[in-house]
Write a protein that binds this DNA or RNA. Structure first.
Lengths: 272, 272
DNA sequence: TTGCTCGGTTGCGCTGACCGCAACCCATTT
DNA sequence: AAATGGGTTGCGGTCAGCGCAACCGAGCAA
């Protein structure tokens, strides 16, 4: 619709696109980095520009280059900045809790936060078995994320319904259509502190998630477990209980007063 | 003297400066973020420009803003970019370090990561002599791995004890039963940055390992050396020192701030 | 109320930094 | 030697971002 962005963001956008390409898809064979031409082509841009932009980015330390293969990858500076991020603080705090959860259940566990209408996975701790997929650093629509039930559990039903009706970005139809089920899941979170859902993005996998609250009682994140092994009813709920307890402990570590669930805050944030 | 930087990097530089300011000095009380004026003043720049640049950066997710206080801090996108690449980056960056370690010690060296309660060897670099055993791609219980001492060195003792008590998968009884020795090894890692242990899986071989931390200070891997030749006490500790230094350098290459050991996260969570 | 300050945003010309094209460089391949 | 493919450099035109200054709105004091 609005093809003209109201505010500026011109050259920056270009640099960001390059970084995004360099980040790869995570699980690819992008280990060796990428060449100028490949990037230019992938972005539909002049290779000369990409070359210059990359040199500038390199001078800033945002990317680095293998002098032999002449390929670029993300640089130390980006990692240094990332480490100073709010999300990083959260991750550092969460590591011991999540790891414990991972070993107790022996399933992949994740820590997710909400960014706009997307759910971003901050960290994945793999189980001892080969894990299904690395979600770290990946965003998917909250509505499709198993953890979404927990992340949105403070919203009122009307807001959730509205989000459910919003069109999904790509051709990812799935079980999200089932509005009633979604609301039931959320209600389950409110009552029992966790939700169990079939993982929309991955067949045969169940997602168990629980909300984490910060010191004000606002939902700051969700822990989730992707259960791939023998997802029997009882085992799922057992894991649910453990996840909820883990989330509770993490919340306390974040400063939530142990007694109160302090939920009243969920103020009518602008739905944009 | 300002020899006029040979290549361009104009608008980008400005954005980077802003990000650098937002990164703060790390140890400060800069968690609340910074206001437009403060940043502008600190950089000696027009506040209008800083305002606009920040808006663009926010649109890209590089910074985020507290809508109440109107202060900015580093954004989720930085974190996401870094998170998506760190696995491949680890393997890629580790190669030269491991190779050097292998050459200097003339022993097989390995890079191991933790998956659930297993230690997985991602890479093995052989010594000049025919190597003893190929571990690449092999998972063994972290409790039985020599590198396990390093991988678990951020855990608190209670968790380690618990893991030690868990039953071992197959008929692999061994020296792991010695809980006290295990904890002593871990303590040694905490003090000196490396551990030396008899290799449980292989008689007459000693494992020397050291933890590698990612940009956030979280233990991401361990380098280990299987010492097969003349494992005298002094030689083992000499190699230990070298391994620890290698791990340290690799950590820095991954983006760990050189000064701090980044361990601050793990400590307050004892007696839980 | 009025007037003042302070932090942040917006309007608007002006200029130099990016853009695209094309040529060039330099290994590697045929 | 020609061709290919990945990367860099030169160059002119134009538009994005700069600086100034005005504006806004919240706090605060008298």
């Amino acid at each position: 619709m609005s093809e003209k962005s109201p505010v500026s963001s011109a050259g920056l956008r270009r640099d960001m696109d390059i970084l995004e390409v360099l980040a790869g898809h995570g699980d690819d064979r992008d280990v060796d980095g990428f060449g100028v031409n490949w990037i230019a082509q992938r972005l539909g841009r002049e290779k000369s520009q990409v070359s210059r932009a990359l040199r500038a980015l390199e001078a800033e330390g945002m990317v680095e280059r293998d002098p032999m293969t002449k390929r670029y990858r993300l640089g130390w500076r980006l990692f240094a900045l990332a480490a100073r991020t709010q999300q990083s603080r959260l991750v550092q705090l969460a590591v011991p809790f999540l790891r414990r959860l991972a070993t107790v259940c022996d399933e992949d566990t994740h820590l997710c936060v909400q960014r706009g209408d997307m759910a971003l996975t901050l960290m994945t701790l793999p189980s001892s078995r080969a894990f299904h997929r690395i979600w770290e650093g990946i965003s998917i629509p909250v509505i499709m994320a198993a953890a979404g039930r927990s992340l949105l559990s403070d919203w009122d039903d009307a807001q959730i319904r509205e989000s459910l009706r919003a069109p999904l970005p790509v051709g990812l139809g799935s079980s999200v259509n089932d509005e009633k089920q979604w609301l039931a899941d959320v209600a389950h979170v409110r009552s029992f502190g966790y939700a169990v859902t079939a993982f929309e993005m991955d067949d045969g996998v169940f997602g168990v998630s629980a909300p984490v609250r910060d010191h004000r009682g606002v939902i700051a994140a969700a822990v989730s477990v992707s259960v791939t092994r023998a997802p029997g009813e009882s085992r799922l709920h057992e894991i649910g209980g453990i996840a909820a307890e883990t989330a509770r402990q993490l919340s306390i570590a974040l400063g939530l007063p142990p007694g109160g669930r302090g939920v009243l805050s969920a103020m009518p944030s602008r739905a944009r």
